[in-house]
Design a protein around this nucleic acid. Structure first.
Lengths: 217, 217
DNA sequence: CTAGAGGAGTACCGTACGTTACGGTTCGGC
DNA sequence: GCCGAACCGTAACGTACGGTACTCCTCTAG
């Protein structure tokens, strides 16, 4: 049955074989969305349904394990907060923006978010919480230290790191995620992402740069 | 069977009774999400299943009609572009932001978006397109004239209205919609919305106000 | 070599739900 | 009063799928 809680730390209690099964389930999830069947997963993973039920309890358990499995694959790249100047801060922010756009526009992320959104509100499982924890909140946890460091270095000026982060989040994501989730084909080539990341970063610096606007934002 | 296309104009070809049935379906959709059954709709609407099938074809037809019905209820408040000064422009923008936040945080919108997201990618129907047309794109159609008028009046400075709109959209919505869709309980009292609308508007004006930053954004 | 565990493959069961069919009722027109 | 259309309520049908049971194969330990 594996672990239950919507915890952050996700289990190295998975055997190679189990990971392979979850990878198969993930691929199927990307292809077919929430309409995947246990039979299809078993066939794709070349395992029996009985094994699926023994390992994951039920369908929700399999889905939860799959989402957590994907989440655990996203590793945090630690931030070096040594000599921080405007150039390196800008580069960091652009990197975050670019990475984030790449993530939310990936097939995997779209599929996972779709499933999680679909399950939210029918309180059977915590897919929404898991996705939020490893998406939006993980990003905040990684970015806030950078923002704080920027403030410490006198490069940024804001009251609340959370508020500043949410503004950055909005400037980067804009309408992209909801459009993708709703099936709109948004153009997101590498170049576009790079340009958007640069633009969002510049806008953010214009709003929160220390030597720009006086205050009140 | 009613009309099919994901058209904008939505039909006054609905009788009173049919509208009542769709209202019932909508209420049920808010309560139970995509897991509503035809039987439940029939019971709630005090009609027979046969009638549902005669009118709407099949389950997807009913869902589509329901979404379109809700969409048709959102009427466009025309914008008065007479004497436009900074004060009235600010008020307009704040109004848009506030209205938009109220919409995306409403039970109905959340339920509809959840269903549409769930259906996107399994190309059976166009719920995603319908929701997008009556949500994000409808907002753009209403807001862009205001932005253009602001530029004409020398209050705003931007190259492309679409880009400016998307930035405004991001500043207003930030992470709210995805968090709500994923089941996060975001605090959104009236006061909060008002404050957020004001903040987003001020940030937008800081970025695109004519007499602020030179260019390059 | 044998025994037993683990798991693949598959047949099977129960159920929920979409869809259809049908009997009964109301209502407008003749 | 009679007819047909529209529609309600409900029973019935077909199917898809979650979940279980059972058989056979493979691999490893002793």
């Amino acid at each position: 049955m594996l672990q239950a809680g919507a915890g952050i730390e996700t289990s190295e209690t998975l055997t190679e074989r189990q990971q392979a099964v979850l990878d198969a389930a993930l691929r199927l999830l990307v292809e077919e969305g929430d309409s995947l069947t246990m039979t299809a997963v078993a066939r794709r993973a070349s395992c029996s349904k009985e094994t699926l039920y023994k390992w994951f309890g039920d369908r929700d358990g399999l889905l939860t394990a799959t989402v957590q499995w994907q989440a655990s694959k996203v590793r945090v790249t630690p931030v070096d907060r040594k000599g921080l100047d405007l150039t390196s801060l800008t580069a960091s922010l652009e990197r975050f923006a670019s990475d984030w756009l790449k993530v939310i526009s990936s097939d995997t992320s779209i599929a996972l978010n779709r499933v999680a959104v679909g399950h939210a509100g029918s309180g059977k499982d915590d897919l929404g919480a898991i996705v939020l924890q490893n998406g939006r909140f993980a990003l905040a946890r990684r970015l806030k230290p950078v923002l704080e460091a920027g403030r410490q270095a006198g490069l940024l000026d804001f009251e609340d790191a959370e508020t500043a982060f949410r503004t950055f989040f909005g400037l980067v994501g804009r309408d992209v995620q909801i459009r993708l989730l709703l099936g709109d084909r948004v153009e997101l080539a590498e170049v576009t992402i790079g340009g958007d990341a640069r633009r969002a970063t510049q806008q953010f610096l214009a709003l929160f740069g220390a030597n720009n606007r006086p205050k009140g934002l």
